[in-house]
Simulated assay, not measured.
Amino acid sequence: MHPDVAADLAELDTTLKTVESVLDVDELRRRIDELEHQAADPELWNDQEHAQQVTSELSHAQGELRRVEDLRRRLDDLPVLYELAEEEEGEARTAALAEADADRAALHTDVEAMEVRTLLSGRYDQRDALVNIRSGAGGVDAADWAEMLMRMYVRWAEKHGYRVEVYDTSYAEEAGIKSATFAVQTPYAYGTLSVEQGTHRLVRISPFDNQGRRQTSFAEVEVLPVVETTDHIDVPETDIRVDVYRSSGPGGQSVNTTDSAVRITHLPTGIVVTCQNEKSQLQNKVAAMKVLQAKLLERKRQEERAAMDELGAGGNASWGNQMRSYVLHPYQMVKDLRTEYEVNNPTAVLDGEIDGFIESGIRWRMAADPS
């Protein structure tokens, strides 16, 4: 085996051992065994919410163990692949070495991705994520852009097998959406997607401009951790006003015959949330309260962070502003303005291929604010 290849495999082994140590593979196996026993209990589903927490944690833990065990197996197989390649001659040897090199490059990517996951150790990182997307400056193009962003995140979640629950979609008159709120339900969704928060900028030839002029549009992405019962976010009934109205789809279509959509206004702060995608008024109110509680939790976190900053605990609190440009014309590029990470295939990015941006964002945030 070439010395450079041997050195690279040794480096991969060191990184993977660090990942295995942080994940604590033995403890992970013990936790999976414990959760499997809980999941096998027929009385578990008497408490639906607890049952879903157990099955979700079990699925996540099994996935993590499967991923890290697969990485270890692939790394152990690589020296054998190189030995077999070197036993070949001529073109067969060249082809076998090229295949081993390709496997090694792919393993590098996957080990680095797993290493990034181990950096998610924030207080709320393991929570589900609540994502709000709002169209900004740019008129109908911005509304269309907001809908493109929503599709990008939903496609990303689908590619990973994560469940998405849409709480509210406010459609614009001509095309696109004014805003949307949806949850991505998988452990560590918040820690993963929190680096997507900020202003996303699109430059393209407007499909809505009959003169074919270039248009710059903006949309805002907000990512919040889903509230759990341990958060103590109390919202007295006297602090809210609940309004009900009829749900509507794009262009006024699919109008419900009952007032099932719900708008909740939090009187002390002026925060307004809506939900219209559930079948009943009660379900919409429950979903809207989840969104309100998440916003109040985030407000509380920001106040605590501001107080810490005043005491000198510091950190960069402004990292979530304008953060990524998507250029479709006059050239093709998506570039993160914080990390300098860029891709020359906007079509793939807008179809959900955003893991590279997320991973570089997590590394950037850890370097900028290790606390």
Rank of each mutant, 00 (worst) to 15 (best):
Q283W: 00
D259T: 01
R117K: 15
E91C: 12
K300P: 02
N316Y: 06
D309F: 11
K290G: 14
L65S: 13
Y82A: 01
Y188N: 04
Q48C: 08
E222N: 13
A367P: 07
D76W: 06
S318R: 11
S371D: 02
L23Y: 07
Q332D: 11
N46V: 05
F218K: 01
A306G: 00
T229F: 15
A157Q: 00
V116I: 01
C275H: 09
E353K: 13
A294Y: 09
A100F: 08
G315D: 04
V334S: 02
I362Y: 11
D351L: 07
E237R: 06
G90F: 10
L267C: 04
L350M: 15
G356D: 08
H2D: 15
A40F: 03
H160T: 03
N132Y: 00
L65R: 15
A51S: 14
M366A: 10
D76H: 14
W45H: 11
D309R: 12
L311V: 02
S247W: 10
Y153A: 14
D26H: 09
T265E: 05
V244Y: 00
S280V: 04
T199G: 12
C275Q: 06
L58N: 04
T257N: 08
W145R: 05
S56M: 14
D355S: 07
Y171A: 05
V203M: 12
P225Y: 14
R201N: 00
Y171Q: 10
W145I: 00
E147F: 13
P346Y: 04
R365L: 07
R72G: 07
D144A: 08
L130R: 06
V255E: 05
P225F: 02
G356C: 03
R305L: 08
A40R: 10
V291M: 03
R213G: 10
